[in-house]
Amino acid sequence: MLRGATRIIDWPMEGLQRLIGERRMPYVFLLPNLAFFGVFVFVPISINFLYSVTGGPALFPAERPFVGAGQYAYLFDCGSFVDPSSCREDHFWRGVSNTLRFTAFQVVAMVLLSLLTAIVLNMKIRGRGFFRAVYFFPVLLSPVVVALIWKWILQRDGLLNAGITGLGGDKILFLSEPGWAMFWIIFVSVWAHMGFYTLILLAGLQAIPADIYEAAEMDATPRWRVFWRLTLPLLWPNLIVVIVLALIRAVQTFDEVFVLTGGGPGTSTLMVVQYIYETAFSNQVQNFGLAAAASVVLGIVLFALTLAQLAFSQRKSS
């Protein structure tokens, strides 16, 4: 049966090979993939620049008037760059400032916690596979599911407030107070993604040859010294990868935050990607040019981070 089915594609491909010759076949194999890349990546990249230098509400670039650097100028029209409210497009700068704050705390927490967890999981303990699975499990959950799980716990009459009132405290509206909301989106995103980074670091730890530790033990090296002088330097390449990857992902944060707080209260957890999404697609705004300009700015930041990662991994492999 399956043989018969694959024959159907065998014949045209063999005919094609007879027609163009064996040496041109690699291009045939490459074509579908490159066509997809072309249509959904390369063409969009160039259109993105077109969008960012044109204005108006039209979707098709040909119908959009050229405005030069107007969108960028509008985006960067600020009284003071440290104060988002002094900017004409204050939502964008709110997003930038929130994203920066989020990234700073989230990456530090993420790296430290996943390092700690990886080290603990690398110890000779019983049930290691089980514990590793426990920490990894949330990685597979969808952002919407993650957000709903925590929304349920953090709501006014949720589990956490039950605990707080049980201890004699007052209920807290965790997702309605700016400070708490920021804390919880950081907490939840660390909760959801920590397992991934833990796994990379754990793989790095396990790649360190055991005899190095045995040698250190023979030399009666104290544990803290083993950590600082052996483990950390040998793990450094993986740690760099983790830091840069965590940065790249944190800068693009959207999903969990969008479902958990919707960017609120007010704009206190509005992220850059949510700003781009809403500027382009929400019914009130629909400003493709501005969204494109903002995404070009974001793209430049991500490009720099990715180059950093490639440079580091290049050094790692050489």
Binding site: F40, V43, P44, I45, I47, Q252, I276, A280, S295, F303
Partner: peptide, 17 residues
């Protein structure tokens, strides 16, 4: 090259395509 282009930054033009 495409590794560096997450969908987040080409949302609008992919929508156009």
């Amino acid at each position: 090259g495409t590794l560096m282009i997450p969908i987040t930054i080409i949302l609008v033009p992919v929508y156009l395509v």
